[in-house]
Nucleic acid binder design. Sequence first.
DNA 1: CAACCTCCATACGCCACCGTATGGAACGAC
DNA 2: GTCGTTCCATACGGTGGCGTATGGAGGTTG
Lengths: 183, 183
Amino acid sequence: MDMGKRLSADDWTRAALAALADGGLAAIAVEPLAARLGTTKGSFYWHFAGREALVAATLERWERTATEDVITAIGVEPDLAARLRLLMSHALDGGARVELALQPSAAHPLVAPVLARVTRRRLDYLTDVFAGLGFATDTARERSVLAYTAYLGHAQLSGIPDAAPTALRRYVESVVAVLIATT
Amino acid sequence: MDMGKRLSADDWTRAALAALADGGLAAIAVEPLAARLGTTKGSFYWHFAGREALVAATLERWERTATEDVITAIGVEPDLAARLRLLMSHALDGGARVELALQPSAAHPLVAPVLARVTRRRLDYLTDVFAGLGFATDTARERSVLAYTAYLGHAQLSGIPDAAPTALRRYVESVVAVLIATT
DNA sequence: CAACCTCCATACGCCACCGTATGGAACGAC
DNA sequence: GTCGTTCCATACGGTGGCGTATGGAGGTTG
C-alpha cells in the first residue's frame, strides 16, 4: 500500500477496517495485516497494546465513518424521499459490508455496544425523516424500522450473485414509494 | 449432549449447524465440536474426509431445512398475508441466524452456490405469494425482494439488544400492511 | 469363542497466529 | 557528528486447530 516507510496507528486501523469488511472480525489478524502493509509485527506492537486494542480502535473508527459521515453526506439532499433512495442505493452498492461482517460477532463484548449505538442512531435519524414526511410518531418509528431492515437486507442481497434486481433505479424508486405510502 | 456412545455423521452435521449459527463458518472446527460432543477427532475422521467435507454436508443440511421445511411449514396457512406475517415473526424470533452467520462467507466457494439457490428459491416463493395477492408479475417481484430484504434485516435486528420493536405483533401487522398495500 | 468389522481414543507432526524480547535503523535536537 | 528518541525487524516460545497413524474397545457373524 504505502511505500513510505513509517506507519501510524491510523494506518493500522484503516487496514483493519478493510480486512474486517471482507473477512469478519477474525480477519483482523496482526500478522496478515502486517504482511499486507509491507511491515512486521514489530511495528504493530509499538502502536498498539495487542489485538484487542486494534479491534477496539477499528470499531471506533467505523462508528465514526458509519454514522456522522454518512448522515452528513446525504444530509445535503433536501428532498426526504430522495434521501431514502440514496440510502437504499448505497446498500445495494455494497456500502454496508461492515455491518454484515460484524453480524456474526454481534454478541462480542467489544462489538455489541458499538452496533447498538450505530443502530439506534440510524433508527432515530430515519424516524426523523419519516416524521418530516408527515407520519405520526408511532408510524414513523415503524416505517423507520422497516426501512432500516430493508437497508440491511439489501446490503445482504448485494453480496449474492444475481439475487439483486437488475433495474436498480426503477426498483429503488418502487421500494421508497412503498415505504412512504399512506395505508 | 448425547450420553450414548456411538455417533453418526448426522450428529456431526447437526452440531456443526448449531455452531455455524452462532459463530460463523469458522466455528465449524473439528476439535471444539468433538469436545462439545464429548468425543474426539478420531470419531470425526472416521465419518468425514476432513473439515471441508463437514462444511459441505452442513451447508447441504441447512439448504434442506431452510427451504423445504420452512416453506412446507407455513404452507398450511391459507391466508397469504398471514403467511407473510409468519415469516416476519420468524425472522424477529431469530429463525434466520444461519443466513446471517453465512453472510461474511458469501464468497466462499462452498457457500456461494448454496446461498444463491436458497435465495432464489425463497424469492420465487415470495413472488408467487404476491402474485396470489393480485399484484402484476413485475410488481410482485419487486415486493418479494423488498419483503425478503426486510426478512433478512429483521433477523439482523433481532440480534441487537433493544433494537427490535417492543410490540412485535402490532409491528409485524403494520409491516405486512405496508408490503401488500397498493400504491 | 473366535475372527472380524465398526467405531473411537491417543499420540504425533504441522501450520497460523499471538505476544515478548531485544537489537538496530531512521530521524530530530543541539 | 553525537546523542537520544522513535519506530521497526528478527527471533523465540506458546496456543489452538488440522490431518495422520495406530492400537484398541465393542459389537457382529460364523
